[in-house]
Computed example of a mutant assay.
Amino acid sequence: MAMAADEIEALIRAAIPDATVEITDLAGDGDHYAAHVTSESFRGKTRIAQQRAVYDALGGRMGGVLHALQLTTAVPN
Rank of each mutant, 00 (worst) to 15 (best):
M1I: 09
M1D: 08
M1T: 11
M3Q: 03
M3T: 14
A4S: 12
A5G: 11
D6T: 15
D6P: 03
D6L: 11
E7D: 14
A10K: 14
A10G: 11
R13N: 12
A14D: 14
A14K: 15
A14I: 00
A15F: 13
A15K: 12
A15G: 11
I16W: 06
P17L: 07
P17C: 11
P17K: 10
D18N: 01
D18V: 04
A19I: 04
A19L: 04
T20W: 06
V21I: 05
V21E: 04
I23Y: 03
T24I: 09
D25T: 05
D25N: 06
D29A: 05
G30Q: 06
G30H: 09
D31H: 13
H32M: 08
Y33M: 04
A34W: 04
H36C: 04
H36I: 12
H36V: 13
V37C: 03
V37Q: 03
T38D: 06
E40Y: 01
E40Q: 10
E40F: 01
S41M: 12
S41H: 07
S41I: 09
F42E: 07
R43V: 11
G44Q: 08
K45T: 13
K45V: 07
K45H: 13
T46Y: 10
A49T: 14
R52H: 12
Y55C: 10
D56R: 13
D56K: 14
D56N: 14
L58I: 05
L58P: 02
G59K: 15
G59E: 15
G60S: 14
G60Y: 14
M62Q: 09
V65T: 12
L66N: 00
H67I: 00
H67L: 00
A68E: 09
L69P: 01
L69W: 03
Q70K: 09
Q70I: 01
A74F: 09
V75E: 05
V75M: 05
P76R: 10
N77E: 15
N77G: 12
